[in-house]
């Protein structure tokens, strides 16, 4: 399966960063790519419950493809969100359902951030994304 361009770019960039501090820097740089959310978008309706930091996630389908927007008040988490969106934006519902996102973060060398003891909320974000794409929640 071919990756979206932004995702391939992320893979290359992270592969070139072996040390923790380089990766953290890169992760924060990716976070800066997130399109800022408006004040109205940062409302409780879009707040993802169960995160130690605040995370907002919105998604809509456009001509059969999914487009998500997300933000957080924590910088490293913003980076993770940007990396997530790089992987999923533009996918169809079937592709989204089939995407192995755990594997995606592992490929980036960030798999540990999805471990169950983490309260960073990435797991909750993935669940919410699934729910949004299944139409369980607007």
């Amino acid at each position: 399966m071919s990756l979206p361009t932004a995702a391939s770019e992320a893979l290359q960039a992270f592969a070139a960063c072996p040390s923790w501090d380089q990766r953290a820097r890169l992760q924060m740089q990716w976070g800066e790519r997130l399109e800022p959310l408006s004040a109205e978008q940062c409302c409780s309706e879009h707040l993802v419950a169960g995160c130690a930091s605040q995370v907002w996630l919105l998604g809509q389908q456009h001509e059969g493809h999914w487009y998500f927007q997300a933000s957080s008040d924590a910088r490293l988490l913003r980076g993770l969100l940007a990396l997530l969106l790089a992987r999923v934006n533009g996918l169809s519902s079937e592709e989204l359902a089939a995407a192995d996102l755990l594997d995606w973060f592992s490929q980036l060398g960030l798999g540990r951030q999805l471990s169950p003891s983490r309260s960073n909320g990435l797991n909750a974000v993935l669940q919410r994304m699934r729910a949004v794409s299944l139409g369980e929640r607007a």
Partner: peptide, 20 residues
């Protein structure tokens, strides 16, 4: 600085401290 960011970078360096 968000406490979650600080906690994350400390844990990257093998420090087991608590944030939240």
């Amino acid at each position: 600085v968000h406490h979650a960011d600080l906690a994350h970078l400390l844990s990257e360096q093998g420090l087991a401290v608590r944030a939240g």
